[in-house]
Amino acid sequence: MNIKTYVSKPQLIKKNHIASASCRQNGYTLLNVLFSLSVFLLISGSLAAIFHLFLSRQQEHDGFTQQEWMISIEQMMNECKESQAVKTAEDGSVLICTNLSGQDIRFDIYHSMIRKRVDGKGHVPILDHITAMKADIENGVVLLKIESEDQKVYQTAFPVYSYLGGG
């Protein structure tokens, strides 16, 4: 065995091609770059969502966020605004809005949430993690007082247009 025989046979020495074997190119093609870029963007986009999920301030299970409070009040206010009559029942723990079709929309406490029911049917959760609700109507204004499970008291007031001659 001599050294010449090993060096003189080029078929024994093979190069690894990074690009596809059919193109016979060394290096990246535009298709490889686009694929790598799409994988990178997919991973980095997913990481941003995961970081936001884990690093953002999480609300405790014994309360609700300000955004939940505002959305629930807007829902109740819109129902009362579109109704022809608004009244309270059961010492203010139930708010009843009668719409123009004659349907009674009730906002009442069910376990630890305020739920919305139409004519005694359905169950639409409006606000969760509460312990008490007190509604009162004075001079065409609904006064709403809600206590959360962490003993914070939230209060709001909104006009009832049927009492003001608008409904």
Rank of each mutant, 00 (worst) to 15 (best):
L34D: 01
K87G: 07
D104F: 04
Q58T: 14
S148N: 13
M76S: 04
K87P: 00
C80L: 02
L41S: 14
S56C: 08
K9I: 12
Q155V: 10
R117L: 13
D91K: 15
V118Y: 03
D108M: 06
G122H: 07
D108A: 08
S22I: 06
M1N: 08
R24A: 13
A19I: 01
L47W: 06
A49F: 15
L47F: 12
V94K: 10
Q155S: 11
K14G: 02
D62R: 09
I126V: 15
S22A: 09
Y154E: 05
S44F: 09
I105A: 00
I18F: 15
N26T: 14
T98I: 13
S38F: 08
V141I: 15
N139P: 02
G166H: 15
L30A: 13
G45E: 04
T98K: 09
Q75D: 08
H111N: 14
E68D: 10
S162R: 05
H129M: 08
D119C: 08
G27M: 05
F35K: 10
V118F: 05
L42C: 15
V153M: 12
G122W: 07
Q25R: 14
M70S: 15
V153Y: 07
V118G: 08
E74T: 11
G165F: 05
I126P: 03
F35S: 14
S93Q: 09
K134S: 10
K9M: 10
G102A: 03
D91V: 10
Q58M: 05
N32D: 15
I130F: 05
I3V: 08
V39Y: 00
M70E: 15
H61Q: 09
I105Q: 00
V118P: 06
E60I: 07
K4S: 11
N78V: 10
M76C: 04
V7F: 14
H111I: 10
R24W: 06
M70C: 04
E90Q: 13
F64C: 02
I130Y: 02
I146M: 02
K116G: 05
A132I: 02
F158V: 01
F40Q: 03
L31W: 01
L12T: 09
D104Y: 04
I43W: 07
K4D: 10
G120W: 05
V33I: 15
S38D: 00
L34M: 09
G140R: 03
A19G: 09
Y163F: 15
L144S: 03
A85P: 01
S46M: 12
L31R: 05
D104T: 01
D104Q: 13
L95E: 02
D150L: 06
Q25L: 15
L37N: 01
F107T: 00
G122F: 08
D119Q: 09
R57Q: 13
E147H: 07
S148G: 13
Y6N: 08
K145P: 01
S38K: 00
G102L: 05
I146F: 07
G45V: 03
K81W: 14
I109H: 02
V86H: 01
N16G: 09
K9P: 01
Y154W: 13
A89K: 11
G140E: 04
I73E: 00
E149H: 06
S22Y: 06
S93P: 04
I137Y: 08
Y163V: 07
